[in-house]
């Protein structure tokens, strides 16, 4: 993932999840909510079991994420002011503790620190 250099700003955080997935709810839903608050952007949740949301979830995963015939969840995407969408995170297909650790590493990352650093305009 490239460190931000262009004068673009995060616009929205999207998380693709399912209620039955322990890596998703509450684990990643809570972390994503916290990340959205840190970035000062709205959080959009796309539930793959909801008819109105699954098409959009499939599309964002297919076009920007980790697409597989039966893709992994959760997947998290960051949308930018210039219209770009970056895949940010995919859950680990191991213990939920591993997905939790990855979220914690993300919060402590140089990438996030750089993103949150105030920039001279």
């Amino acid at each position: 993932m490239a460190h931000p250099t262009a004068p673009r700003r995060p616009q929205r955080l999207t998380v693709v999840l399912a209620q039955w997935c322990p890596h998703c709810v509450p684990l990643s839903q809570d972390h994503a909510r916290r990340l959205a608050a840190r970035l000062k952007v709205p959080l959009r949740i796309l539930d793959i079991d909801r008819r109105g949301e699954v098409r959009l979830a499939d599309r964002i995963v297919r076009e920007h994420g980790d697409a597989s015939p039966d893709y992994l969840i959760p997947q998290v995407f960051l949308e930018w002011s210039d219209g770009a969408i970056d895949h940010l995170f995919t859950g680990f297909s191991e213990q939920t503790a591993r997905t939790d650790r990855a979220w914690r590493d993300l919060f402590a990352s140089a990438w996030l620190k750089a993103l949150l650093r105030p920039r001279a305009s």
Binding site: D66, A67, L72, H87, T90, D105, S109
Partner: peptide, 18 residues
Amino acid sequence: TDLRLATRHGPELGPRAE
């Protein structure tokens, strides 16, 4: 259908890997 892909960009892997 049993093979699933995941991308690790770095920030989620700890400081050294990042």
